[in-house]
Write a protein that binds this DNA or RNA. Structure first.
Length: 968
RNA sequence: GCUGAAGUGGUGGAAUUGGUAGACACGUUGGACUUAAAAUCCAAUGGACAUUAGUCCGUGCGGGUUCAAGUCCCGCCUUCAGUACCA
């Protein structure tokens, strides 16, 4: 009987589906284990061989854990809202739901044929109303919450209202908008309902605010910071501009500190934690207020004969800065404001006005991209105004410069040229003073920024102090003056949550008097309305503006036709005028909304009463192992941690981190094939001969190239007509292609489809080969040619059990060698899986099969447990042989074979004998010999004596079981 | 610039954490089987000299520690990834 993988694989995939072999129960006596993959976005192109890499690894681990006796949850689903389906709809008019459904069917077929042990009864789709009902529900929960810095957690908004009613907001330490105004309890109670609502919005964890957003005109939508790469949109590479819009935001900044602290409690990769730390960007320092000197302004004002009241206004100007180096405050010789800073126009003196305005205009013209690309050129302008040093009271010139960013900190810095290179360069360029405040440091060439080596000089009350002491003292003195305080700044911004798109979750929100109202959770889901076109409306509203049935009837609590409410700007109608029917929110939620709690929904995915039951979350707790790509470091993985912490605060989940351990799988790259066309001809020259010609490189389909880089010319001619009448210059009768490793992409013709691999070699070969390619975390090129190695391993494995006469396995008593091979393999494979080095265990299997074949092993006692080891990696062949051995049912639930050390223990070992560290020969010695006895035996040996030539060795080093080194 | 990871045969990659470097696989070469090809099997395969046994050199470069270094320490170089005027 031959190894007919296609037949075997189809048979067992059917068996697993029919018997629900991998269905996980929410109740079990077994310990639980939760293995999660990042669910895919079902794109129209389907899977290529790079996609399943992480899924194969997690599947091996999940299967291993089942063998270990765990109740394993290993679900899969689809992140099925998103832009490509919507753009396809714009182009073709086909509803995104249909596109999505078709794509999911393709994905499912492709996933199924690789033989994953997913529990498909728990599948989720983010675009399914039954699922996004709960995304909407979480949104409502966030709306009804605020963040209390005193308790460091989210609390109910109703509790906040109680505090407002009894004591106002003066004592509240909350995460809220910056420009909040203080009010008393009395004032609160006298506010109108609308005023109250608008104040509460400034505290809510999701809030509506006019914010400056990243607007992408080409995509017609706003983007979050993590969706922009190098100043252009991540998707499509379109330019992005800053624009003010009223948008929903998530107050993730409230959780900045907890998101940072939490990283220490989870077993995620170092680089991933590092990117999150950078993204959160905590910096500790002080905020300092510099008073703008009025006299200068007054003087210039007098010169212009303007009203004297101006001086009073000028006097109140303060420039607030954030610094991480309060200890260098005596080194300040100028201040720099971002050109966009609001004070610029107010403090600029008439003399400087023209210059400053010209500069602002010039910088405004530069795009974000130009500004980033060109950081070397130093530009700026003097405002003519001066600020007063808080301690020395000396006047400090105020400049503007585009090296100061409006979006970070306060958009203004105190410039210390001796301690910061950018300030130094700026000062040098404009001829500003560079006072030295560091003891024994030469600053004639560069600034000195080493905190740890700092000793302060020329600085009044902090002379001689180090960084730490000086910082503390300066902050204290600033506080005494009322001109500053210790402050921690975070780079993390609140996340914009509105998208001007169709294919996303609708908000459960309607508007009364312009104020957002939540729809009661019991009426969820609010389903996405039908629209005729998926583009924004003529008036520039989001696509939902095209919906005719998109108003909320508060009498019947359902979505109704919006005939009565003409959608216009928010807040233009009053309550009475349309009988309780109000406009619904026209934006939809961003892509990350649906993926921020899906891991918890898998625990109880069909629950219509709650996002998940208490029993389910109490049983499954959190994800034990999460495998996915590192590209989600500052997106999905940060937002999910944020929502999880919120869910924890609300008492819905038991852990404030959702995944204990996370592994980033690397990417599988393509190996493109290149042919060389001699310029201006239709002649193609083989790689080895191209040296003498002037050639153009053309990429061709990699699937036509064999393991020796030889292209199949017939296939090439069939592939594209331009090769039909081409001439080929061969070397040794072959056309050899060039190779280039790059991202797998249609445009390079280097995409390899797993369907083809499965047809030609089988799913087990695919699974083994993907693991065999190299360490999981690493980026590595795919080359189909190499798959023959693992494929012939499977054939050898088959032959170990079955030959032309049928089953070879007998009840023969295993030999010592058989047992040694088996137990060595058990040990190694177990270690490998637990260390996630799946690549080396494939080698281990190959060695085991080679050894057992050489030993002519046919003992069931050896070959049966061997199958269990292999079944995590190559489940189909393992099942088939398991059945051939006469077993009933699936191998998936059979216990992992027990390792028995005694089979590995040997009585003697070949010791390497080295002289001065250089190996000379080996010597067989019993393992139970003492160190001294070994030493004596080695010295007495003939060969040793030969090497020593009569000399006495200085030292003999014996490492039991390892080596004997004679030092002489 | 900063942060992180990594440099080992023609290629992908092993190396029990300081103990015989190059496991396993691809590729290449030679051989067996075959009319032939495919498939399969066997042998060789880091380099140089010797082709009988052997010797020397070899893990990016230069030092160091050690009886012993791919592994540890110091100083460089290169590549990849992330991030970037963050005050």
């Amino acid at each position: 009987m031959k190894y007919n993988f296609n037949e075997i694989e189809a048979k067992w995939q059917k068996y697993w589906a029919e018997n629900q072999t991998f269905k996980a129960e929410n109740k079990s006596d077994k310990p639980k284990y939760y293995v999660l993959d990042m669910f895919p976005y079902p794109s129209g192109a389907g899977l290529h061989v790079g996609h399943p890499l992480g899924y194969i690894a997690s599947d091996i681990y999940a299967r291993y854990k089942r063998h270990q006796g765990f109740n394993v949850l290993h679900p899969q689903g689809y992140d099925s809202f998103g832009l490509p389906a919507e753009q396809y709809a714009i182009q073709t008019g086909q509803h995104p739901a249909i596109t999505t459904k078709e794509n999911i069917a393709t994905y499912r077929r492709q996933l199924d044929q690789i033989g994953f042990s997913f529990d498909w009864s728990r599948e989720v789709r983010t675009s399914d109303p039954k699922y996004y009902k709960w995304t909407q529900w979480i949104f409502i929960q966030l709306f009804e919450s605020w963040f209390n810095y005193d308790t460091n957690k989210a609390e109910a908004i109703s509790a906040l209202i109680k505090i407002f009613e009894t004591e106002g907001n003066a004592n509240i330490n909350a995460a809220c908008d910056d420009d909040i105004e203080l009010f008393t309890a009395e004032a609160w109670n006298n506010f109108s309902s609308k005023e109250q609502q608008s104040i509460l919005l400034q505290y809510r964890l999701t809030y509506l605010a006019e914010t400056e957003v990243n607007w992408c005109p080409a995509l017609g939508t706003v983007l979050a910071n993590d969706e922009i790469v190098n100043g252009v949109s991540e998707r499509g590479g379109h330019p992005v501009v800053r624009k003010k819009m009223t948008q929903w935001s998530m107050r993730i900044s409230a959780y900045a500190e907890r998101l940072l602290q939490g990283l220490d409690t989870i077993d995620w990769t170092g680089s991933l934690k590092e990117s999150q730390r950078n993204w959160i960007g905590k910096s500790v320092g002080a905020s300092v207020a510099f008073n703008v000197i009025a006299s200068e302004a007054k003087q210039s004002a007098n010169n212009e004969n303007t009203d004297v009241t101006l001086s009073a206004v000028e006097e109140s100007h303060k420039i607030e800065v954030f610094t991480t180096r309060p200890d260098t405050i005596f080194g300040v010789s100028f201040m720099t404001l971002a050109p966009e800073h609001e004070l610029v126009s107010k403090i600029t003196t008439p003399d400087q006005k023209a210059e400053v305005e010209a500069y602002i205009e010039a910088t405004a013209k530069r795009s974000e991209r130009d500004r980033m690309a060109d950081v070397k050129t130093i530009t700026g302008a003097f405002t003519g105004a001066y600020a007063e040093h808080p301690f020395t009271k000396a006047p400090i010139p105020i400049w503007i410069g585009d090296y100061v960013l409006a979006g970070y900190g306060t958009g203004a810095v105190m410039s210390v040229p001796c301690g910061d290179q950018r300030d130094y360069d700026f000062a040098k360029h404009f001829g500003i003073d560079i006072p030295n405040i560091f003891e024994g440091i030469d600053i004639s060439e560069v600034a000195f920024a080493d905190k740890d080596k700092t000793v302060i000089a020329n600085s009044d009350f902090i002379n001689g102090m180090n960084y730490k002491k000086a910082t503390k003292r300066v902050i204290y003195e600033l506080e005494q003056l009322g001109q500053g305080e210790g402050k921690t700044n975070y780079r993390l911004r609140d996340a914009v949550f509105s998208r001007q798109r169709y294919w996303g979750e609708p908000f459960p929100v309607y508007y009364v008097n312009g104020m957002p109202q939540m729809i009661d959770a019991k009426y969820l889901p609010i389903e996405l309305p039908e629209v005729e076109k998926y583009l924004p409306t003529e008036t520039g509203e989001p696509p939902l503006g095209n919906a005719t049935v998109w108003a909320w009837d508060t009498n019947t609590n359902q979505v109704v036709s919006n005939d009565l409410v003409i959608p216009t700007e928010r807040g233009t109608r009053d309550e009475e005028s349309h009988n309780g029917i109000y406009p619904l929110e026209l934006n939809t939620m961003p892509g990350w909304a649906g993926s921020s709690q899906y891991f918890n929904r898998y625990m109880d995915p069909n629950n219509d009463e709650a996002i998940f039951s208490k029993e389910a979350i109490d049983y499954w707790q959190q994800v034990d192992l999460y495998i996915g790509g590192s590209e989600h470091a500052t997106g999905h993985l940060l937002y999910s941690r944020f929502w999880q912490k919120f869910m924890f605060d609300k008492g819905y989940v038991n852990h404030d981190e959702f995944a204990k351990k996370l592994i980033n799988q690397g990417m599988i790259l393509g190996t493109s094939a290149i042919v060389y066309r001699i310029s201006g001809t239709n002649k193609y020259v083989s790689k080895g001969l191209k040296g003498t010609y002037d050639v153009e490189e053309l990429r061709v389909d990699v699937n036509m190239v064999n393991a020796s880089d030889e292209i199949n010319i017939e296939a090439l001619q069939k592939w594209q007509p331009q090769f039909n009448d081409a001439e080929f210059i061969l070397e040794e009768g072959k056309y050899i292609v060039g190779r280039e490793v790059e991202k797998m992409s249609k445009r390079w013709f280097n995409v390899v489809n797993p369907d083809d691999i499965v047809t030609d070699y089988g799913a087990d070969s695919l699974r083994l080969y993907e693991m065999f390619l190299g360490p999981l975390e690493q980026y590595k090129p795919w080359n189909t040619a190499g798959i023959t190695g693992v494929h012939s391993f499977l054939k050898k494995l088959w032959k170990l059990y079955i030959d032309d006469n049928g089953l070879k396995v007998t009840d023969a008593i295993p030999t010592k060698d058989n047992l040694k091979t088996l137990h060595k393999t058990i040990k190694k494979v177990q270690e490998d899986i637990e260390n996630f080095s799946f690549n080396t265990s494939v080698s281990t299997f190959m060695i085991a099969v080679n050894e057992l074949t050489a030993q002519k092993c046919n003992s069931k006692e050896i070959l049966e447990p061997l199958l269990v080891l292999i079944s995590s990696y190559a489940p189909h062949i393992a099942e088939e042989l398991w059945e051939a051995l006469g077993n009933e049912g699936s191998i998936a639930t059979v216990p992992f074979p027990e390792f028995n050390e005694s089979h590995l223990v040997e009585s003697s070992k070949n010791y390497p004998i080295s002289f001065n560290g250089k190996m000379r020969f080996t010597m067989e010695l019993p393992l139970d010999m003492s160190k001294d006895a070994i030493e004596a035996a080695v010295l007495a040996n003939e060969k040793t004596q030969e090497q020593l030539q009569g000399r006495t060795p200085k030292k003999v080093i014996v490492v039991p079981g390892k080596i004997v080194n004679i030092v002489g």
